[in-house]
Amino acid sequence: MVSRDVELGRSVAEIAEMVVADMHMADQTLRGAGLGILPDYAINGGVVLSAVPHDVLSLVEVRQMVNLSATRRLWSRLKNVCAMHPDMVSELWSYKAGRVPGGLFRRLRVPNPIAVFAEPPTVALALGGHGRLLAVVICGRHRAGGVFCLTSDERMDELAIIAICEPLAEDGSPLPSLDGDRPTWEYANLSIPAGDSDRFSAEDLAEWTARRDGLDAPTDGQREIITRILQLLVYLCSSKADITAPVAPRGKAAKRGRRERQWKSRDTFLRVGWRLGPALKAARERAQLARRSTERAGSGPSGWRQYPHQRGGHQKTVWKGPGRTIPDSTLVLPYWVSQDLLADGEAPEGIVRPVR
């Protein structure tokens, strides 16, 4: 019987391959329209898109395809794929990030990754309706030059994010492809400041994005997607994030060289939350069971003690280095309140109680 981890790995491999194929198809479409040089300009500078004739493709289509093609070219230098464990994603979705410093995003643990969801969560879409969040493409950008770059580039002062969603019909099934070739996907583009003086929350990002799109206020879909992306990015910037690198091949596999090893193999992905996510889910389930049993038994004779419960975790920014000038993010794990009131065997192990 195939284990759940193997099934999740296969799902990540399938989605990652579709995402990269779609980005490559955008590049091929631009080449077919005689606009194949635009992704190079988007990386190295050189042309204003509004000055390009659009006889075949609209300006909106050209911009989106240029974004996809340029980010794919930069991604292909390292080919980093972060496989997001669904249990870890569920936990991150429940944690608040608060206001964060932009400089934190210059400390992304994995350069230019594509974060792929093994079990894509359902989210509200920016333009209405719902869809599955398949992947988040993360790239760097230099605002002054208006060009894409690696997230490790010293010029990088903002993150360029592309959230790729699969819209769903009312019955929950994927929408059919319009042209039978490219999938019917929706792309949410987001810019996240990465300057040392920047401070913002998810709501700030949503309002900036709404103004960019000519809206008076953010839509519910914009708020949700931006909140989810920020929760994900804050964790990926943590120096203590549960990110496991693939095991280096040995013997004959090592001799074949990196070029022969497929990037889309589940054995080459960076696993995010595959250890911590299931542990947190199990602890949460035990906490809910313990709370129900305590409520049935009553609150105790004294009447003033809080009933045993698990206080939710959250993400916070901490400052390190000389003069505490280097931002880092840390995940404050859930911990127990009035744990001593629990019956023997009810308190889950492995929950960290933060030091006061």
Rank of each mutant, 00 (worst) to 15 (best):
V89Y: 13
W93I: 09
W93D: 06
S94P: 03
Y95V: 10
Y95Q: 07
K96E: 07
K96V: 08
G98L: 00
G98P: 01
G98H: 00
V100F: 06
V100I: 07
P101R: 15
G102E: 02
G103R: 06
G103I: 05
G103W: 05
G103L: 04
L104I: 06
F105K: 12
F105M: 12
F105W: 13
R107W: 11
R107Q: 13
R107K: 14
R109C: 05
P111H: 15
P111V: 13
I114H: 14
I114S: 14
A115M: 12
V116I: 14
V116Q: 08
F117D: 10
E119C: 12
E119M: 13
P120D: 15
P120F: 13
P121A: 00
P121R: 00
T122W: 07
T122V: 15
A124M: 13
L125G: 05
L125N: 06
L125P: 06
L125D: 06
A126C: 01
G128P: 04
G129D: 08
G129S: 09
G129Q: 08
H130P: 04
G131H: 00
G131A: 02
R132M: 03
L133P: 09
L134I: 01
A135E: 09
A135V: 08
V136A: 05
V137Y: 09
I138D: 02
I138F: 06
C139R: 02
R141D: 03
R143M: 14
A144L: 09
A144R: 11
G145K: 14
C149P: 10
C149S: 13
T151K: 10
D153V: 11
E154T: 12
E154D: 10
M156P: 04
M156R: 05
M156K: 05
D157Q: 00
D157R: 01
E158F: 05
E158A: 04
L159E: 00
A160F: 13
A160C: 10
I162H: 00
I162M: 02
I162G: 02
I164S: 03
C165L: 14
C165Q: 13
C165M: 12
E166M: 12
P167C: 10
L168V: 04
L168P: 08
A169N: 03
A169K: 04
A169T: 01
A169D: 03
D171Q: 04
G172V: 04
L175K: 14
L175Q: 14
P176F: 11
L178P: 10
D179R: 00
D179Q: 01
D181T: 08
R182L: 03
E186I: 04
N189M: 02
L190Y: 11
S191I: 11
P193H: 10
A194G: 07
G195Q: 13
D196M: 10
S197D: 11
D198H: 06
R199W: 05
F200V: 05
F200W: 07
A202Y: 04
E203V: 08
E203F: 07
L205K: 01
W208M: 02
R211I: 13
R211K: 15
R212E: 11
D213P: 11
A217E: 15
D220N: 14
E224W: 01
I225N: 00
I226F: 10
I226Y: 09
I226Q: 09
T227Q: 04
R228G: 03
R228Y: 02
R228T: 02
I229C: 01
L232M: 01
